[in-house]
Simulated scan of single mutants.
Amino acid sequence: MGRSLFRNLIQQGSRSIMSLKVSYGLLLLFSFLTATPVFSDPPPPLSEKALFEFAEHLLKEKDWDGAILEFKRYLFLYPGGERADQAAYLLGETLRRKKDYAQAVLQWEASLRRRPDTPFKDAIVFGLAVVYSELGREEQALSLWESLIREGAPPYPAMACRALLWSLVKGKQFDRAEQILKEAPLSEAEKELHRRSVEEARHLPRLSPTAAGLLAAALPGAGHWYLDRKQDALIAFLINGLFTWAAASSFQEKNHGLGVLLSVMELAWYSGNIYSAVNSAHKINRKREAEFLNNYRIRFGLWGRGEKPDAPYLALIFQF
C-alpha cells in the first residue's frame, strides 16, 4: 500500500514538471514570435574632415602603410572633397617617405594629369624632382628644379634653388652652380654663403689614389703613410719585409721549393698592400665629400624634421 502511494506521487510530480516545461517552452516561442526585432545601427562613417585628419595623423606618426590606406580611402569616398588635392599630394609624399619611389611618381603624375591646376602643383613638381634624384635621374630632377625657379610660387623658387645647388655640388658641376647663383631667387647674404660652399667644395682636399698606389709599389707601407694611416703602414712594411727576408733566406739555403712558396705569398701581400693604399685613398675622399655634403644640408636645412643628416635621400617635408 505504501509503495503504491509513493509510486503515484512520483508519477504525478513527473507529469507536473513535464507540464511546466511545455508551458515554459510555449511561452518562449510566443515571446519570440511576437517580439519586435531590434538591430543595432552600424557605426556612422567618418566625416570627411575626421578621415583626412586621421590619415594626416598616421603620416605624422610615420605609419606609412596606415597613412597610405587612409589617404586612398579619403580619395575614394570624397574624390571631389574640400581637401582632395592635398590628400592626393600627401599620398605621393607618404609613398616617397616610405621609399616606394616608383609608386610615388605614378601617384604624382596621375594627380597632375587629373588636376593640372591643382594648388599643390609646385609641391608635387618639387617632390618629383626629389624622387628623380633618388632614382639617379639627375637631369630630370635638375630640369624640374630649374622650372620651379622660373615659374614656381613662393617659397618654391628658393627651395628649388637650394636643392639644385646642392645637387650640382654633389655632382661636381661647380661652374654650373656658380652660373645659377647669378640669378638665384635668394638674398645676397645667402648667395654669398652658397658661393663660399661651392668654392669650398671645388677645393676640398683630396688624396691622390695614384700617388698612394705608386708609393706603396715603391715601398710597402709608404702608400698608407701618405694617407696618414701609420699603423697600417707599419704592418704592411713589417709583413712584406718578413716574407721578402724569408724567401731570400730560403733561396740562399738552396731550399728552392720553400723560397718559391714564400715568394708567391709575398707577391700576394705586396699586391694587397698596393690595392689597399689605392682603395683607402678613394674611401677617405668619399668620406670627406659625404661629410661636406651633410654639412651643406645642415647649413641650408635640406632635410625634413626628425630625419638624420646622413639619410640616403634629400628629404624636404612640407607643412600646409
Rank of each mutant, 00 (worst) to 15 (best):
H57M: 15
W64K: 06
A55C: 15
G81L: 02
K72H: 06
I68F: 01
G80W: 06
L69S: 08
E82I: 08
A67K: 11
L69M: 08
F54C: 07
F54V: 10
D65Q: 09
L59V: 09
D63A: 02
A55M: 05
G66N: 11
G80A: 10
E56W: 15
K60Y: 15
G66F: 07
A55E: 12
P79E: 09
E82A: 05
Y78W: 04
D85W: 10
D65N: 10
Y78A: 02
I68A: 05
L75D: 04
H57N: 15
K60G: 12
G80D: 11
P79L: 06
G66Q: 07
D65M: 10
D63P: 10
Y74K: 01
K62N: 14
Y74R: 01
F76Y: 06
D63M: 12
E61W: 13
Y74V: 08
F54P: 03
H57W: 15
G66K: 09
K72G: 00
F76D: 02
K62Y: 12
D63E: 12
W64P: 08
H57L: 15
L59C: 10
A67W: 03
A67H: 15
A55Y: 14
F54T: 14
P79Q: 01
K60C: 11
L69T: 06
E70W: 05
L69C: 02
G80I: 08
W64C: 02
Y74A: 04
L75G: 03
F54G: 07
F71D: 01
F71E: 03
E82C: 08
E70H: 05
F54I: 12
R83P: 06
L75C: 03
A67Y: 09
E56H: 14
E61M: 12
P79H: 05
A84Q: 04
F71W: 02
E82Y: 12
Y78L: 03
L77E: 13
E61Q: 07
F71L: 00
Y78V: 05
K60D: 11
A55N: 13
D63F: 10
D65I: 05
Y74N: 00
E82L: 10
Y78K: 03
R73Q: 07
E70Q: 04
L58S: 12
D85P: 09
L77V: 05
L59A: 13
D85A: 13
L77H: 04
E61A: 12
E82T: 01
K62F: 08
